[in-house]
């Protein structure tokens, strides 16, 4: 998907994130954070030239939903484009340092996904703090990447 579309989603998701209470609304606060992070990952990969920003939408690795001229959508086998989660699939090749740092931050965020959303782990302030710190690192990388892209 185009960087501009990722950026528009990131802007709206950040605004929503500010309206959710991290502990009271943990599940939606966390998922909003995670979804923002995935958009950050895809936009940063596109900006680095590591994946295509073609307007096709991610599903499972290797399969994208492709808009058709008649307004319908079709699943197709495609090469590297948007991913649905960091590491799913892994990005081939050598990644620049800022992308490696972003990947680490997003993996730190993802650590809490299944235990807290699909398991019995109860959210705590410590978990919220870990997520906040990981997300802040991810957002900083994204903002620098976008500034660098605009300047170049």
């Amino acid at each position: 998907m185009k960087i501009a579309s990722h950026a528009e989603k990131i802007r709206r998701l950040l605004e929503l994130r500010g309206r959710l209470q991290p502990l009271e609304h943990f599940e939606l606060w966390y998922w909003t954070t995670l979804t923002t992070g995935t958009n950050i990952w895809n936009a940063t990969l596109h900006a680095a030239g590591l994946t295509s920003e073609e307007r096709v939408f991610s599903t499972i690795p290797g399969v994208h939903v492709v808009p058709q001229p008649d307004g319908t959508f079709r699943r197709e086998l495609r090469g590297p484009g948007d991913v649905s989660h960091v590491g799913w699939p892994a990005i081939a090749g050598t990644m620049p340092a800022h992308v490696t740092a972003l990947e680490a931050a997003l993996h730190a965020l993802e650590e809490h996904r299944d235990p807290c959303l699909r398991g019995d782990r109860r959210p705590t302030q410590a978990i919220v703090d870990e997520c906040e710190q990981a997300f802040a690192r991810a957002l900083a990388v994204y903002e620098r990447a976008m500034q660098h892209k605009e300047a170049s």
Binding site: F57, H64, V65
Partner: peptide, 9 residues
């Protein structure tokens, strides 16, 4: 999800 969450339809 792919169309509206991960996509921009």
């Amino acid at each position: 999800r792919p169309v509206y969450v991960r996509g921009d339809a």
